[in-house]
């Protein structure tokens, strides 16, 4: 039972940690399927994390915070769109600029507004996303009623009930949003007119243009969707996973999301599994800090670095041939 409890707890934490990756990964999927490479996922998330935490701290409303995060991310998306769609600039450089901009701006504004060393005040109550409790699941309410801690109640119940309470129930609403985005994205991409055109514009924009559809319009739409999803991802980090913004809190998640996107070969369901895998790695690293392997202690730093190391290994060795959308990264210019 102990082992099972640990397993369930690790998986629970996997879901929490995979959520921001999944949102960012799907964000990248829309953008890259439309032919706009976006390495600015990280920056957009960071900016959204800061503005959502800041607005939630000031207004006391996490929903206003979420909107502010989405708006901040959309502004950066628009910037990326201007640079790479309207002015046909280099998409990688624009993305790098966005990452630098977010990294510096967030700390600067945080210091200027809150004077707490580049962080926002801690969020509590309405300022954070609460966990949703499913019926019959063990949660804080039961703990209050019985006067015993949740963990004790958990360890006493049967396996099925435990898994239900830990894995399905007890997450913030944004987690459910993220996982519902997977089938929705699949459906949009492969079952709707918009999806067909989106995929076409990433493969051969000339085909879309000669068919009388606006390449620029489609690409802006994709970049905007990317901005909204990154905004949700950032808000989740600062207002649900943690309680407030701290400097560089995205910690490379935007890049891991990109890795997951390549690993998934730009397909929604595969993206979910890839993000869960990376989430699992992070959860394991968090849970098992110092592992003693018969006298040799693996230091905590190694465990912390593990997800990043495995990202490199997986990308280098296990992806096989990942063919990106054919027109990806290239500005569309009508040929003479």
């Amino acid at each position: 039972m102990d082992f099972f409890l640990t397993l369930v707890q690790v998986l629970d934490s996997t879901i929490r940690l995979a959520t921001p990756l999944l949102l960012a990964c799907l964000a990248g999927l829309y953008s890259e399927r439309a032919g706009i490479f976006d390495i600015g996922l990280e920056g957009k998330m960071l900016m959204a994390a800061f503005f959502s935490a800041a607005v939630a701290a000031v207004t006391g409303s996490v929903w206003l915070g979420l909107l502010a995060g989405i708006a901040a991310s959309l502004v950066l998306s628009a910037l990326h769109g201007f640079a790479s769609i309207t002015f046909r600039g280099n998409q990688l450089i624009s993305g790098v600029a966005i990452n630098f901009l977010a990294s510096g701006m967030t700390v600067l504004i945080a210091q200027s507004w809150f004077k707490q060393g580049g962080r926002t005040p801690s969020l509590f109550g309405e300022g954070r996303f609460e966990s949703a409790e499913f019926p019959y699941a063990i949660g804080p309410e039961d703990a209050e009623l019985t006067g015993r801690p949740v963990s004790e109640l958990m360890s006493e119940t049967n396996a099925l009930h435990l898994a239900y309470s830990e894995l399905l129930s007890g997450h913030s609403i944004l987690v459910y949003v993220a996982f519902l985005m997977v089938p929705l994205t699949w459906w949009i991409l492969f079952r709707t007119r918009f999806g067909l055109r989106l995929r076409a514009v990433g493969e051969n924009p000339a085909a879309v243009d000669t068919a009388g559809v606006s390449v620029v319009g489609l690409r802006y739409a994709a970049v905007a969707i990317c901005g909204v999803l990154c905004g949700i991802a950032g808000a989740y980090l600062a207002t649900a996973l943690q309680a407030g913004f701290v400097k560089e809190m995205t910690a490379g998640r935007g890049f891991i999301a990109l890795a997951a996107l390549i690993f998934a070969k730009w397909r929604p369901w595969h993206a979910m599994w890839a993000c869960l895998l990376f989430g699992l790695l992070q959860a394991v690293a968090l849970r098992f800090q110092n592992i003693d392997l018969g006298g040799v202690v693996i230091p905590v730093q190694v465990m912390d670095a593990l997800p990043y190391i495995l990202t490199v290994v997986i990308l280098a060795g296990f992806v096989g041939k990942a063919i990106p959308p054919r027109a990806g990264g290239e500005p569309y210019v009508k040929e003479r």
Partner: peptide, 26 residues
């Protein structure tokens, strides 16, 4: 066109429909 304006990893049918769809659903 001299260089065909087709999406290579789409089916023939999808290429024909692209831009001339009848509604939101495919």
């Amino acid at each position: 066109f001299q260089h065909f304006k087709l999406v290579e990893n789409f089916t023939v049918l999808e290429n024909i429909v692209l831009g001339a769809e009848d509604g939101g659903l495919l």
